[in-house]
């Protein structure tokens, strides 16, 4: 930071020397330094940046450091001997591989389903329906609730004995299933509940994008004789790409860190077999088993996965001038 400031100051001095050709009169350097826009804006973004920077970026660095120790149990970490032992352990732990697999299944199925359902909802609501705002409010309602709250509802929905889901599939003569206990289907059940909660979110994103498309284009494609279906496929949906990209990023990142819902629906750190993901595994190792260093290593793995999504997204936003 200091070096940046010094650099800026030097640049300014140089340009001043060039511009004034010595006629700088009596205005003091300090005074003009204070007029600099960088300096004047610093009181505004500086404090939030320091607070956020400490808790986000310094914490990530610290977390990495912790992952190199062999910190377990009570007391503090010993930073004197650092190695990559925990990362080796990470690669050899079969539970990690299972959690990684589940994470990716969750991520892919959840994201794609949310995108499709959200698009469907948005197109329905975009068709000049009455009470459109009422419908939107209802579809988005689950998203406004805490995972801890919705987890209670879904425990009840997935209840083995007389849960609504089992009653529903019973109509078709199948079931009952132990939705949250059967390793074969538990992940699907979790994804279904999460889609219920998040599809309203994707709908809102798509809806905003749909509404920003000028009506001329709808009318133009009508005049060109396109059917509704073709109009959406050829004219409208291609323009929703930016919305889709930003919604996907949010959904993928959520899928990576989803913890609250799994904790609450299974009532503890350990999800039922078949539903363990990296995020739950990380919290369990650290806070359940006090394997702090190992938990930190898993956290770094999660962070790297997130970075693989965030970095291209931010770069893309930057090149489009959206930042």
């Amino acid at each position: 930071m200091k070096r940046v400031l010094a650099f800026l100051r030097r640049r300014r001095d140089e340009s001043r020397a060039r511009t004034d050709g010595g006629s700088t009169e009596s205005r003091s350097t300090a005074r003009r330094w204070l007029d600099n826009d960088f300096v004047r804006s610093a009181p505004f973004w500086g404090p939030p940046f320091l607070l956020m920077g400490f808790f986000v970026y310094a914490a990530i660095g610290w977390n990495f450091l912790l992952s190199l120790t062999d910190y377990t149990g009570f007391g503090g970490a010993d930073y004197s001997s650092l190695d990559f032992e925990n990362y080796r352990r990470l690669f050899e732990d079969p539970a990690i591989w299972e959690a990684t697999r589940n994470t990716f299944v969750l991520l892919v199925v959840f994201t794609i389903t949310c995108l499709l359902i959200g698009l469907g909802l948005a197109i329905l609501l975009d068709r000049q329906v009455r009470f459109g705002r009422g419908f939107r409010t209802i579809y988005l309602l689950p998203f406004a609730l805490s995972f801890i709250v919705t987890a209670q509802f879904w425990r009840w929905m997935y209840n083995v004995n007389d849960g609504i889901v089992n009653q529903f599939v019973g109509i078709f003569g199948i079931g009952p299933y132990n939705w949250l206990g059967n390793p074969q289907i538990v992940l699907g059940a979790v994804i279904f509940a999460l889609v219920w909660q998040f599809s309203g979110y994707t709908m809102v994103i798509y809806l905003a994008a749909l509404r920003s498309i000028p009506t001329d284009q709808y009318e133009a494609s009508r005049v060109d004789g396109a059917s509704t279906l073709r109009m959406y496929r050829r004219v409208i949906i291609p323009q929703l790409r930016p919305a889709m990209v930003s919604a996907s990023v949010t959904l993928v990142l959520f899928a990576l860190k989803a913890f609250d819902f799994l904790y609450a629906v299974f009532g503890g750190y350990r999800p039922r077999q078949g539903a363990d993901i990296l995020a739950t595994k990380m919290v369990r190792e650290a806070f359940g088993q006090s394997q702090w260093a190992y938990g930190s290593a898993i956290a770094i793995a999660l962070f790297v996965l997130s970075l693989a999504v965030i970095a291209p997204y931010l770069y893309n936003q930057y090149t489009r001038g959206n930042l």
């Binding site: 986000v56 977390n63 990142l253 860190k257 919290v283 650290a286 930190s296 956290a299 999660l302 962070f303």
Partner: peptide, 8 residues
């Protein structure tokens, strides 16, 4: 992801 900062 909050997991990446929660231990520190």
């Amino acid at each position: 992801p909050y997991q990446a900062v929660i231990v520190p």
